[in-house]
């Protein structure tokens, strides 16, 4: 079965928190190369792995993964602020 391309913010979240791929990989129980494949969108994680990543960053799963290309976080934050005010 051909699956859809999933987009994610793993790289930006990992960089923001100063975590190496090896550290993230150890925390979620995968090979460090798998983190690279996930970040580049070359591998779609299972639901279990997606939840592990979501729990690691302490963010809802839909903030990290999407079926649509993701906007930069700064742009999304700006739009949300404009929406609130």
């Amino acid at each position: 079965m051909k699956t859809r391309q999933l987009y994610n913010r793993i790289a930006v979240l990992r960089n923001e928190r100063g975590i190496s791929r090896k550290e993230l990989a150890t925390a979620i129980g995968v090979n460090y190369q798998t983190v690279g494949y996930l970040e580049r969108g070359e591998y779609n994680p299972s639901l279990d792995l997606a939840f592990k990543i979501s729990e690691f960053f302490g963010l809802p799963i839909e903030i990290i993964f999407s079926t649509q290309p993701m906007k930069p976080l700064s742009e999304e934050l700006y739009e949300r602020r404009r929406g609130i005010s």
Binding site: Y7, N8, R9, A11, V12, R14, N15, G18, I19, S20, R21, K22, Y32, Q33, V35, G36, Y37, E39, R40, E42, P69, M70, K71, P72, L73
Partner: peptide, 15 residues
């Protein structure tokens, strides 16, 4: 494609 230099904390692609 072979893995990139995944061992290091290389630059993230800003999304």
């Amino acid at each position: 494609l072979p893995p990139a230099n995944d061992a290091t904390n290389d630059a993230a692609v800003a999304r």
